[in-house]
């Protein structure tokens, strides 16, 4: 079935962090893999894979574009962090925050990326101050909506007010599809068991999550003390409680609400935890989500972002390349590319 849409596929090289960290694959190897897997777009976290960042040497920039040409790939998105707390004893001033992101804008432009994934907590007034620089360098600042926040969360609503007032095509959102986790990833519940969490607690978390009965935290950065207390009450350790909070720090938001906000969405992290051999994702209902993205007229990249690695690395050899391959096969099918 051929469906009319303009959604493109990419991969965040973050997906391959295990092989990269263990020095099994170099940055060039990863770019070569994206060609082998027929993924047109490349997304990068420069703090992870570019030595010396935030400084970008001319030699590196030349090599980067050389790789893009050699492997016929397109740079799509650069993921920035704002190191708010890097100074001991004080947080960054507003001017320092603006300056740090302004440098990222110049760097993204050098790398040929048209979008910057902006880390969640950056305030509307900072982005507004950066709109002229973003426009000058042709780089869109797309703040990442990440579970447990969604379009209707307070910070996102404050950003929407600003986006509507400023009306700049260089300001908007990145959406992380981790907001649509329908059931807890099996890689997480299995890890809890391997780490010695009681089976009753793991079942409570998995079943309670799916039924929507677990205590929740409303916004990113707020600890879910209700859930932690419950785990302790069930005889779990402090460690179990902390793990439960991190592992169950997920949401299944209303996918329909996305339609209203897709015009403000410039990039999507197609998050996944476990691709099964039948090319479906265990916990995120891509079969429901992708048709809605098409319906809503989304026209940016869907960028595979594998995050199961950290949950299985204690017991299994991580095969990120196979996981990304399966994920892209699924995306092609749902986008009607075959």
């Amino acid at each position: 079935m051929k469906t009319a849409h303009n959604i493109k596929r990419s991969v965040s090289l973050y997906s391959f962090q295990e092989e990269y960290f263990l020095r099994k694959m170099t940055l060039e190897d990863l770019i070569a893999v994206t060609q082998k897997l027929d993924i047109p777009g490349v997304e990068v976290i420069p703090d992870q894979m570019i030595p010396g960042y935030p400084e970008l040497s001319d030699d590196f920039v030349k090599q980067w574009h050389g790789w893009m040409e050699k492997y016929e790939r397109t740079p799509v998105c650069m993921d920035m962090f704002l190191d708010w707390n890097k100074f001991k004893g004080r947080v960054m001033t507003e001017d320092e925050r603006v300056e740090s992101i302004a440098k990222d804008i110049v760097n993204a432009n050098k790398l040929g990326c048209k979008v910057i994934r902006v880390i969640h907590d950056v305030e509307p007034q900072i982005l507004e101050r950066l709109a002229p620089a973003a426009e000058k360098y042709g780089v869109t600042l797309a703040l990442e909506i990440h579970a447990p926040s969604y379009y209707d969360s307070p910070h996102e609503q404050r950003l929407m007010e600003m986006f509507q007032r400023v009306q700049s095509p260089y300001l908007g959102f990145t959406l992380d599809l981790g907001v649509f986790v329908k059931r807890l990833p099996r890689v997480i519940t299995e890890r809890f068991l391997r780490d010695g969490m009681k089976k009753e607690i793991v079942e409570y978390l998995a079943d309670g999550y799916e039924k929507g009965t677990l205590p929740r935290s409303s916004e990113l950065g707020k600890p879910n003390t209700g859930l932690m207390d419950k785990v302790l009450e069930m005889g779990g350790s402090e460690e179990d409680a902390r793990k439960a909070m991190i592992g169950a720090h997920m949401i299944y938001a209303d996918p329909q609400l996305m339609l209203e906000y897709l015009p403000y969405t410039y990039h999507i992290h197609a998050k996944f935890y476990e691709m099964l051999p039948d090319y479906t994702e265990y916990s995120i209902p891509y079969e429901e989500i992708v048709p809605l993205l098409i319906k809503g007229g989304y026209n940016g990249y869907l960028s595979s972002e594998y995050e199961g690695n950290r949950w299985i690395q204690d017991a299994f050899e991580v095969d990120s390349v196979e996981q990304v391959r399966r994920h892209q096969v699924m995306l092609k099918r749902l986008l009607g590319e075959e």
């Binding site: 299995e190 793991v202 299985i312």
Partner: peptide
């Protein structure tokens, strides 16, 4: 959800 797949092995 809870199959107990995967034996505990030493951390790499």
């Amino acid at each position: 959800h809870v199959t107990g797949v995967g034996l505990r092995r030493p951390q790499p």
